[in-house]
Amino acid sequence: MTMHQQTLLLFLGIGILLSVASLIGWALARRAGDKPSPVVENLNARIKAWWVMVALIGLSFLAGKTGVILLFAFASFAALREFLTITDTRRADHYALAAMFFVALPVQYYLLWIEWYGLYAIFIPVYGFLILPIIAALRGDTTRYMERVAEMQWGMMICIFCLSHVPALLTLTIPGYEGRGLLLVAFLVIVVQSSDVLQYVWGKLYGRHKVAPNLSPSKTWEGLIGGVASAVLLGTSLWWITPFSPLQAAGLSLVITLMGFFGGLVMSAIKRDRGVKDWGRMIEGHGGMLDRLDSVIFAAPIFFHLVRYWWTV
């Protein structure tokens, strides 16, 4: 199969899955009559938003590498503004904040676009890490300086650096897999996001024992085990779009679904700390961009480096 046929098949499969989900959601809403429960309403909002997100990813795939980089640059932008909105920065941080939005973000994605691995892998963790506190210090306000800088560093790493590792997969050269980077992006996103969805479904159906009651009331052991196991099965069954053997696909799926789970946990801890339920309201039914991407953000850099270490020359 050519890459185009594989991509087409993949999107066809997702389309069928979403259609089934929409049908189930419609049936649930119908059964409830004029008073559908908030859970059903939220489910249907989520499914609808999935259609939009899949359509956007599909469009970006049509535009190739540039399209995917632009899509994730936009996602980074949306995530960064959600993250920085709940930080406690002061007026003296204005230049530092502006530098993140208008310099760090575009430069990171430009470096990806020109495929300069040597720089995009260290641009934020080295240059950004050192220059940001300098910019903040130059304004001379020392009130809560360390907290302010630490929060901004977090935002930059999470929302720009980590997230940019999804499109960074397109810059990897894997022998025998040339020109198929988009499918690797699809594999990562499908496995991690379906793990989120499956954890939600398993949790709603069988969830009893909470994993981390202090962090997230909705995460249960039943959801975690059922969701991760079924997402690993899904990932294994997608080995044909990857450079991996089925066993390797299973192993990587396990790593990225677990990272995804912990990503959700960490981001929940931040929300709890700040007393907010969702990061934003950008995506109907899901919350903000970060609510949707927290798992991908934690999975992407690890997946990228595992693949880069073992599969590239």
């Binding site: 932008f77 503004r81 959600e82 920085l84 909105t85 920065t89 007026r91 204005h94 904040l97 502006a98 939005f101 208008f102 934003g280």
Partner: peptide, 15 residues
């Protein structure tokens, strides 16, 4: 006030 503090000319796109 964080998007556009007094005396700044470049808005920062916070929500």
């Amino acid at each position: 006030n964080r998007v556009m503090p007094k005396g700044e000319f470049l808005p920062v796109p916070l929500l």
